[in-house]
Amino acid sequence: MLKMTHITKVFRTDVVETHALRDFSLHVAEGEFVTVTGPSGCGKTTFLNIAGLLETASGGQYLLDGEDVSALNDYQRARMRNQKIGFIFQSFNLMPDLNLFDNVDVPLRYRGVKAAERKERVERALDAVGLLSRKKHLPAQLSGGQQQRVAIARALVGEPRFLLADEPTGNLDSNTAEGVMELLHEINNNGTTIIMVTHDVVLASRSARNIQILDGRIIDDRRAQQKAA
């Protein structure tokens, strides 16, 4: 599914050079649920952004679904994001002017799905997160937990095979976070590969696989029942 070999990422500004990722190699198989942990600034978000084609690596090779993404242009990368990848952000990032329906609708618009099918899929996705009855509401009218569930619906409406979540529970209290985690596990059980960055050690310890990053490198890759790869 995802295969990174010797990936590096360097941020250059006039004064400093930050090595956000160094010699980063990782293989994630289809259907896995991987949590990523590490101290602040170690490169977790950078890794997700590269994995999600929002950022390009400075070096190394990245194969997504067997395809070398470094050769893709902006249009092809956008298409790949749209069709294969779902994103969930710590701060939800819903669009404030759009109601819930229209928020969830966005990925399907970019895919050019017909109106009738869009309606059906958006409603199904909202139903799955228990918010169908509020489809006309604006994000600001919802609680944080509800907003994150809308964001999940939006990430899932296009039925991506690959879900990237950057601290999806970071802004939620533990009860709400629990609900969101259940939802993610359910999604994973349906076959979607998930990579989730988290600060929560308890959540990490419960996942089937946890990788730990320090200073842009993987320092631990632990699977729950098996030995490290």
Binding site: G52, L54, D74, Y75, R77, A78, R79, R81, N82, Q83, F87, F89, N93, M95, V106, P107, Y110, R111, R154, G158
Partner: peptide, 15 residues
Amino acid sequence: GEIGVRQALGAHRGS
């Protein structure tokens, strides 16, 4: 921010 989200959700520069 919104532009970033749209890109993540599949908008390319042309759109």
